[in-house]
Design a protein around this nucleic acid. Structure first.
Lengths: 237, 237
DNA sequence: ACAGGCAAAATTGTATGCAATCTCTATTCA
DNA sequence: TGAATAGAGATTGCATACAATTTTGCCTGT
């Protein structure tokens, strides 16, 4: 197969497909709200920014459109997704459908190392929350979602994990659009309690807390008409 | 194409993006096992078949790779996915995680029309099962998966529905690879019982039957080493 | 002033060309 | 005979060119 073992290792670094790099950079920017919902994403612009041709940018944007983070309109281009209230409800309904199961699996699978990771993550969330400033707020949003992803990774099913990635990313968008309390208010305390219940292997409690947590998140939303949103977005910048 | 005002109306039909048409054609072929797991999919070949450039074929193949139906290897090309035993297990675990919730939502949402659709679908499955021949077998595979998709569509959450589409399609691949009983044996009787339970609004029973059904499906699998599979594929054609 | 429409600019959709990489065959050497 | 290898052919990765479409700004007539 290969002629030198070293070459193979060298490839591993290069393997980082350029389209994936771009798609992840965009996803980060969208989730952290640096790119607001509805914003136009021009192929050539992104291309020159990352120094690649539109071909690559195109595949990155398609990937994001599969994840529901970007909407592609024929002959008009790509835009950061702007979930409708109905879509938003469905996203949270989907989370209610999936996350209790993930929590239960996590309880079954969690090793001591996993629990340590969870605790470390909670601390991380805490730090982000205590700090001020825009960048700290972004860290907080990101960390809050990462908690759920960490749980999914502990549950140990790659397919479910990928599904949760999508749901979390889209949740961030929804919260950006419809969240009321200035803080992302992702209820850090809820997370602490959930980890405690998991550590105690108390499945019933952990599941109940998980459901409660999702209700909590959705309760902070205000599904205004999307025209209002347009304005809000325009005026806030 | 068309030149006049009629064109505009025609567009709605034309809107069917060419990449999507191709990707759906391929998905059908994969799910119905006309394209066996592991088969190489050459871009130029597909392109000339549908009379489009490789560009379009490429996006279709990427779409399928996001769905897990196609594996793309850098510089080597696209192949019909060949799920490992571990992947197969995760697919069914994911179904166990999601489908009970779908069944419950379906019970909540199902109108009389929906129930009629379900009954009609059962009849359709029955017909496919009673017929002989390769094409009938394909119909059976397809119909058997469609039952679960129909249930998901009744549950009424587009996001969950999309997720189920992926799981069902991948399940078909897994069954093609590891199924033992010549018949796709998707337990048509199970489906009948599930519909009965839904019609009776008996949530506990419907959920139990759903879980049982998935266990049933997976019990018919034999996770051989993938080398054996290679042989089986080679000899069966 | 303003609605309507035309033309230029910007942007996307698709095909194609070229370089890089892989695959397979045939040939050579042990 | 069999393993190693070189090289031709096939295939993919990416950039770019061109056509189709949309958007923008200007102009004109009312």
């Amino acid at each position: 197969m290969e002629t030198t073992a070293i070459k193979t290792r060298g490839n591993a670094a290069k393997e980082a497909e350029r389209a994936v790099v771009i798609s992840e950079a965009l996803q980060d920017a969208i989730v952290e709200r640096r790119l607001p919902p509805g914003m136009k994403l021009v192929e050539a612009e992104i291309g020159s920014l990352f120094d690649v041709s539109r071909t690559i940018v195109r595949t990155a944007l398609q990937e994001l459109s599969f994840l529901g983070l970007v909407r592609i309109e024929r002959n008009r281009g790509a835009f950061v997704a702007k979930p409708s209230p109905e879509e938003a409800r469905q996203i949270f309904d989907a989370r209610r459908l999936v996350e209790p199961g993930i929590t239960m699996d996590a309880i079954k699978q969690a090793s001591n190392d996993d629990l340590a990771h969870l605790r470390k993550h909670l601390q991380h969330e805490n730090e982000a929350m205590s700090q001020r400033g825009l960048s700290a707020r972004r860290m907080e949003i990101r960390a809050s979602g990462d908690f759920h992803l960490l749980l999914a990774s502990i549950a140990g099913n790659l397919i479910v994990q990928r599904f949760m990635s999508e749901l979390i990313a889209r949740s961030c968008l929804v919260i950006a659009l419809y969240g009321q309390s200035g803080a992302s208010s992702c209820g850090h305390d809820d997370h602490v309690e959930i980890v405690d219940a998991i550590a105690a292997r108390d499945a019933a409690r952990a599941v109940a807390l998980t459901q409660h947590h999702i209700d909590h998140l959705e309760a902070d939303l205000n599904y205004r008409s999307s025209d209002d949103i347009e304005l809000r977005q325009a005026l806030s910048l």
